[in-house]
Nucleic acid binder design. Structure first.
Lengths: 343, 343
DNA sequence: ATAATGAATGCAAACGTTTGAAAAAATTTA
DNA sequence: TAAATTTTTTCAAACGTTTGCATTCATTAT
């Protein structure tokens, strides 16, 4: 009663004066077990709250049914949507997700990967941290590759690694967003860029630049300012844009958060959106539809990414040895709302 | 080279024609091992990418260093803040967090708890799902208690369970919010309530009701409408409020999301905030400071809750047997911003 | 009664690691 | 050179479970 040691098969065996094998078979409904024995043992097991020790089974079968999800953050809508997608597919298959948050920190990422391998995780979904990306380190991944643990990149990738990958087409999403602003008639479009070095930031930035070029519009250094993807980080940059001698008439934010930050500053200055200033975000976060005015944005199918990534993993696990890595790129979709609809 | 079986201590022992014990001791810097042997073995181990199998160690030591975090959702700011708090304290201590999302589903919650126990998780942080709460089921918890696995409730609780618990003082937060609206001079205050049955919803609701009563203001059924805590769910209810013969002049939203939904509807109707309509939310989510007007709200220290919950867990683990359960209630704080500052 | 069958159970090894105690090997001391 | 000491290594058991094979026991057929 006061001993909290979990009851084991051996305990039950002692109680019934039989061998552990018999108990194991009884609990697993093995046919070669006497009906009465089976019933008695099962009943007793239920009574004393027996729960099979999965750790020992993992050791025996070399299967842990657990997967690692290593992400830089979980405080954005998109990341949680991805996790939800992974969950939707993998949970019903008996997998447990081990979510590790690196806070964009290389050392933590490294430690997590090592720990996951030590715990014999059967697969790893990785969105590399910014620090890792910046530094160009990749030794911590070699171990994963060497061990042939399936590794699926989410969003961020190393070009020179042979792995599967699921990504949103940030480039074309950004391109479409800027093209839309141009089509409406905005002439001078600024960009609140995401953190340097991240694939998502750079791809969106590239979409922005290429679109301007396509329409023979100048790409002006002073119209491109960095943020860290958080609301606050858009405040100062936006003020700087508005303080310019000839300020932009539209802003393309690298995500909804910074667009919303910009929206606030613009309105504070008494400018009207979209008449005086056009505004586009990225993510299609739930709140973007309910700002005032509602925010034109680019949808990013996080849930789908999670589900696709799961599929890639399952392919790799179930497939034969000569498995070919896939690179899934899901389209992003421009969602036109009030913040850019100047008539 | 092509065999992906992880290299074990036995493999290394074979290679050096020594016993596994020697290898184990060499890798762990045991003093009774010859310096040369140690160096050779360590070098070779590094070369072949040896990583200790933690599963076998878990079995041996009956320690898994993994903790379960069972929450209904991770798509809100608050929940992720809590997880971050847990993380901050527990990660450096070597614990791995196993995050399980129940989607407010009883069966899933039950399955997760059972799985966590089977995996010999050393502690569980639980915010029970709404379904569980509604149904009043608790058998799935008995197992946890019986096994003496430390169980820390976060926010939601069962009154009749002897466990530790960390919570925000929703009641007084809500009370303060409504009192603030009254002090400003708002006369008819509506409430966009959270899902019925949840402690957080009910406590905030109770704070609202009690505050009205304190100031001899009537509690009117038709001014209290349910939402599901999401932005969209505030739209129809707010419209219904505004369509009333004599509509309210202030709205207290059960969280920031619904307050922001309400804000949108109110502005669509051409009403001014805070002049024609006062508005208060709950959570102090990052975006609430940057809406236009910025949203008066009640801060909810999610990070702190996570850290406190960690502390409760550690107390229970390190403490002596005659451990007394603690019930931490952190204060929430009214953050006054523009949406309620009618002068 | 005995051999042959079938049903029910037990034995032992395996998964990978650690660890106290014993053994072996090397070194020092007398 | 033998004994004593120290250093280094090995043995064996343990963690909890499963499973092929061997064993026991009861039943049936001869």
């Amino acid at each position: 009663m006061n001993s909290s040691r979990p009851v084991t098969i051996k305990d039950i065996a002692r109680r019934f004066r039989c061998s552990p094998s018999t108990v194991s078979r009884a609990l697993n409904d093995h046919p070669a077990i006497n009906e009465d024995t089976r019933k008695n043992i099962q009943e007793y097991a239920r009574e004393v709250g027996y729960q099979r020790n999965e750790v020992s089974l993992s050791l025996l079968n070399k299967k842990t049914a657990s997967l690692g999800v290593v992400v830089p953050t979980i405080s954005n809508y998109y990341e949680t949507a991805v996790i939800e997608g992974l969950h939707t597919v993998l949970q019903p298959m008996g997998y447990t997700l081990n979510i590790c948050v690196t806070n964009e920190n290389y050392l933590l990422e490294k430690e997590y990967l090592s720990k996951l391998l030590s715990n014999r995780t059967e697969g790893i979904f990785l969105s590399v941290s910014q620090e890792t990306y910046d530094s160009g380190y990749y030794e911590h991944l070699e171990n994963v590759i060497q061990r042939k643990t399936p590794l699926i990149f989410i969003d961020r990738e190393y070009e020179d690694f042979e792995t599967s990958r699921a990504t949103v087409d940030d480039y074309h999403g950004a391109f479409a967003a800027v093209e839309h602003l141009i089509s409406i008639g905005y002439k001078k479009i600024a960009h609140l860029k995401g953190p340097n070095g991240l694939t998502v930031s750079e791809q969106r930035f590239k979409g922005y630049v290429d679109c301007l070029k396509k329409y023979d519009m100048p790409v002006q250094e002073e119209l491109i300012i960095n943020t860290n993807f958080k609301v606050e980080s858009a405040i100062v940059p936006t003020k700087r844009l508005l303080d310019m001698a000839s300020p932009p008439d539209a802003i393309f934010g690298a995500n909804d958060q910074v667009a919303i930050g910009a929206m606030r500053v613009v309105k504070d200055r008494g400018l009207r959106i979209p008449q005086d200033m056009g505004l586009v975000g990225f993510d299609n976060s739930p709140i973007s539809a309910y700002t005032f005015p509602s925010l034109t944005t680019v949808s990013r199918p996080g849930r789908k990414i999670g589900m696709e990534a799961s599929r890639l993993f399952l392919n790799q696990v179930n497939g034969s040895g000569d498995f070919v890595h896939e690179n899934i790129v899901l389209p992003s979709e421009l969602i036109i709302r009030e913040s850019s609809l100047r008539i």
